[in-house]
Amino acid sequence: MNRIDRLTGILTHLQTKRTIKAIELADRFGVSLRTIYRDVRALEETGVPIIGEAGQGYSLVDGYRLPPVMFTKKEALAFIVAEKLVEKNMDEESNTYFKEALIKIKAILKSDEKDLIGRMDDSILVLDSHPISSQKRQSRNFQKVLDAISERKILKTVYSTFEPKTTTQRTLEPVGIYHSFSQWYMIAYCHLRKDYRTFRIDRFEEIQVREETYVLSKHPKLQRFLDKLSEEQKLFQIVIRVQERGLKFLQNMKYNLGYVSEKKVGMETEMIFMNSSLEWFLRSIIHMTDMLRIVEPAELKISLEGLLADIRNTQDSF
């Protein structure tokens, strides 16, 4: 990169955050700190109003080159979600181009929106990403949850669990959200349980963002909860071999089952899944057991035999 391109890049990068340290710019452009110091001085000499604070970094005078296009808070939050989802979905080259484009978009945000993105970045994580179901309830709830986290406001909710089927009213202090197995989840402190709980966002029957606020800093970081969940949750490795005619039935559901990988083995496709519930996995594929065979674990084979026997007995009783 020649110096003119680097100077332009530094100016653009300076507009993406309130303050940026010299070491961050040096890492970003692959040059030494001394080079960054010279480049910043050159920009100052051309009239760019750069403020340098010891131990803090560089910043531009607020409003410098403020463009006519303005973004709302919701649009600024959408940038974070899009960046994290695209990072998991795109190939490396396309992802690089997307990040470069997003830097240019962030550069025209006002200081308040830049601060918002900085606060929210650690509160949104994508563990894996696959096509998200277009459920209206999830979409409606998602924005309310984002608003509550960004404004540190308490949520008043009605939440329904799947198994067992129960509906409860919950008052929550949201810590953050994460995406896994094609669903968005929220980790929050629950006033009802007096502890932290994980909630699937599409299972909220009602969500109200209250005016009462809470102190986000009193809660641990989102990543800490995810590390703990990973340690506590026992995942089973499931290996099945599927006939060619059965693959089409698995394409739209395999990610919800914890899909990991697949490979061709003779005339079959061997697929590997990681799932916390053998029963749930089995009931999800029971309709196509004539097109696949279970390789492991052994207890899943035994459960299949028992489930098929129960089905026969139930049908014979009618």
Score class of each variant (00 low, 15 high):
6 R>N: 11
7 L>G: 15
9 G>C: 15
9 G>Q: 11
15 Q>Y: 08
21 K>G: 15
28 R>A: 11
29 F>R: 15
30 G>R: 08
31 V>R: 01
40 V>N: 07
42 A>P: 00
46 T>W: 00
49 P>G: 01
52 G>W: 09
57 G>H: 01
57 G>Y: 04
57 G>R: 01
58 Y>S: 11
62 D>K: 11
64 Y>W: 06
65 R>F: 02
67 P>Q: 01
69 V>F: 09
69 V>H: 03
74 K>W: 03
75 E>A: 05
76 A>N: 03
83 E>L: 04
88 K>P: 04
89 N>W: 08
91 D>V: 09
93 E>I: 15
94 S>K: 01
111 S>E: 05
113 E>I: 01
114 K>F: 04
116 L>A: 10
117 I>G: 07
125 L>Y: 14
130 H>V: 05
137 R>F: 14
139 S>L: 07
141 N>D: 08
144 K>C: 02
154 I>Y: 04
157 T>S: 04
160 S>L: 12
161 T>Y: 00
164 P>C: 03
165 K>W: 11
168 T>K: 03
169 Q>D: 06
172 L>I: 08
176 G>E: 02
176 G>M: 05
177 I>K: 06
177 I>M: 02
178 Y>C: 05
179 H>F: 13
182 S>R: 06
184 W>L: 03
184 W>T: 04
189 Y>S: 10
191 H>E: 15
194 K>Y: 14
201 I>G: 14
205 E>N: 10
214 Y>D: 12
216 L>F: 12
216 L>C: 10
217 S>C: 06
219 H>L: 13
219 H>R: 00
220 P>W: 09
221 K>Y: 06
224 R>A: 09
229 L>D: 11
230 S>N: 10
232 E>T: 11
235 L>C: 05
235 L>N: 00
235 L>I: 12
243 Q>F: 11
245 R>G: 01
247 L>D: 05
249 F>I: 11
260 V>W: 12
261 S>F: 03
273 F>L: 00
275 N>L: 14
279 E>Q: 00
280 W>F: 09
281 F>L: 03
282 L>F: 01
282 L>A: 04
285 I>S: 04
287 H>E: 07
287 H>S: 09
291 M>E: 09
293 R>E: 14
295 V>S: 13
297 P>A: 06
298 A>H: 03
304 L>C: 11
304 L>W: 01
305 E>D: 09
314 T>L: 07
314 T>S: 12
315 Q>M: 12
316 D>G: 02
317 S>G: 08
